[in-house]
């Protein structure tokens, strides 16, 4: 995973978070934040989030991996690795 891939993944994830949860300030986001508990995304928000990421990056997160992408950091890494 190159530095650039990770930056691109981060940009896509942040943009998707801003779209789904406009009140979350991604400029000052703790990447350890948990998507469900800390960012308060519900299951429909989560679906919108990964759909937005898929449209931007082409990375599809299958349902069996939903349980894996728990935090912002893991989500960025996941997108970078599968991009």
């Amino acid at each position: 995973m190159t530095e650039q891939t990770e930056q691109e993944a981060r940009a896509a994830v942040y943009a998707a978070i801003r779209q789904v949860a406009p009140d979350v300030d991604t400029d000052d986001l703790d990447e350890g934040a948990r998507l469900r508990q800390d960012l308060e995304l519900d299951s429909l928000d989560f679906l919108r989030l990964i759909k937005t990421i898929h449209e931007a990056t082409g990375v599809d997160i299958p349902e069996r991996d939903y349980a894996v992408v728990t935090t912002v950091r893991v989500l960025i890494t996941y997108v970078a690795l599968h991009g």
Partner: peptide
């Protein structure tokens, strides 16, 4: 431009901060 590419001006605050 994709929203991803553009900076968003926002005050610095915690993840649950109010709108910008």
């Amino acid at each position: 431009a994709e929203p991803a590419a553009a900076p968003v001006i926002a005050p610095t605050a915690g993840p649950t901060a109010g709108p910008t």
